[in-house]
Write a protein that binds this DNA or RNA. Structure first.
Lengths: 165, 165
DNA sequence: GAATAATCGACCAAAATATTCGAAATATTT
DNA sequence: AAATATTTCGAATATTTTGGTCGATTATTC
């Protein structure tokens, strides 16, 4: 709070005129950044036609943005929660939305006979789980690791199992 | 302490069987790392013959090592102390030693008619002060800044003022 | 199997941190 | 310019975190 106040050039107590608690501020920041991410994602998948392209774009933008939106990372990551637990908690609210987007891409791909998807709900969930799993080492590991490379590899696997024929 | 205990896979209280306080652990770590640094430095200056080379090597290795020995950086730096104050505090103990090494290099250089040094004690102190000053922005500033470049520039200045003729 | 070494969980005091409160300053409306 | 509403603040309080203690318990050694 002290730090927030300083950054705002305000007295600590003034903050409580606008927010009821520290958590509320935190929520607001996360909401704000999640909205940015959502916009980036939707424009990104619109920019490509093919379902494969959409899926590729989505995964890339998502992971890249996650890296950029580092506010929570720097603010909270230090020691409060286990890393995975932390990410899990933040995203609870936005999971449904993400599933919806993924389902849409999958459904569209299946309609166009490019994906083979038995149950878009479950497949979307599976992909989401994978993406989440990917976030953990993204924060955890040293930054030297080539993320692009790893993402490509994973996408390859994903498509190789998903693309028709 | 909780974190240290966790890292050690021990109960918090067990740690106090070996150390009397948090500070004592901290000191032990610093001492340990300072010893590594000392070794690196002494072998580094031995590897070169000329006083100018020695001085160059010393400054480089010192600054590079300082960057590497990031334990205290990560452990304490977050917010506890002002940056400069922090560095100052840690090094209090090892300043004498450093001065001694610098004096040796200077003295040797003067004897070989390469340096002009009126009072090696004071000159060593001046150099040390400069090096300390250099450490602050090293932590403070973004890492993108080219340290090598800056070190070279500073060494140039140092020598231009110090080398005979 | 007694003596010593090592570990632990539960607890405490103090430091750090979040939050409240009343009042003062500032802005807006009447 | 009085009255009212909004915003800011410092000081006081409540809550949480954290370094450290203690007695009991479990390994290890002789």
């Amino acid at each position: 709070m002290e730090e927030v106040a300083k950054a705002l050039k305000m007295g600590k107590s003034s903050i409580y005129y606008y927010f009821n608690s520290k958590e509320e501020i935190f929520d607001a920041v996360v909401l704000y950044e999640a909205n940015i991410l959502r916009n980036e994602l939707t424009t990104a998948i619109k920019s490509v036609e093919s379902p494969i392209g959409k899926m590729e774009k989505y995964v890339f933008v998502r992971m890249k943005s996650f890296e950029k939106l580092s506010n929570y990372y720097n603010a909270i990551f230090d020691k409060n929660l286990d890393h995975f637990e932390f990410i899990e908690k933040i995203r609870e609210k936005y999971d449904r939305e993400e599933i919806a987007i993924l389902r849409l891409i999958l459904y569209d791909g299946a309609k166009k006979k490019i994906f083979k998807v038995k149950n878009s709900e479950y497949t979307a969930l599976a992909i989401q789980t994978t993406l989440k799993g990917l976030e953990v080492p993204l924060f955890w590991q040293k930054r030297e690791v080539n993320i692009d490379q790893r993402l490509k590899a994973i996408l390859d696997v994903l498509f190789y199992g998903i693309v028709l024929k």
